[in-house]
Computed example of a mutant assay.
Amino acid sequence: MAEPVRVRRLTDQEGQRLQQIVRRGSTSSVRYRRAMMLLASAGGNRVPVIAQLVAADEDTVRDVIHRFNE
């Protein structure tokens, strides 16, 4: 079985920026949902849980995490 997909360790600046996006909620809904996915992953949640949280497909969540990690 493959290793679970997780976001890499966030820098302080990245974490603050993601929280700022989520708190304000004034940016695009896509940006908001991506920030939620990354913060949820950083918090230790697994892909299926994150997908339910943001009402997205599990593959979409994996793609967002992989892109961020690159």
Rank of each mutant, 00 (worst) to 15 (best):
L38C: 08
M36I: 03
Q19I: 06
A35F: 08
N45M: 09
A35G: 12
G44S: 09
G25R: 14
M36L: 14
A40E: 03
S41Y: 05
I21A: 08
Q19M: 13
V30W: 12
L10M: 08
S41Q: 05
Q16S: 08
G15F: 05
R17D: 05
R33K: 11
R17T: 02
R46P: 00
L10T: 00
T11Y: 03
R33F: 03
G25F: 15
R23C: 11
V47H: 05
Q16R: 12
Q20W: 11
E14L: 06
L39C: 02
R33S: 12
S41H: 02
D12F: 08
A35W: 07
A35K: 10
G15P: 10
L39Y: 01
G44H: 07
A42F: 00
R24N: 15
R24P: 10
V47P: 03
M37P: 09
R34W: 14
R17P: 01
R31T: 13
R31D: 14
I21N: 01
Q13W: 00
R17K: 08
R17F: 04
A40D: 05
R31F: 06
N45V: 01
G43R: 10
T27D: 15
I21D: 04
R23Q: 13
S41A: 11
G25E: 15
R17G: 02
A40W: 01
Q13K: 04
D12E: 12
R9W: 07
S26H: 15
A42W: 02
G44M: 07
S26Q: 14
M36G: 07
R34N: 13
D12M: 09
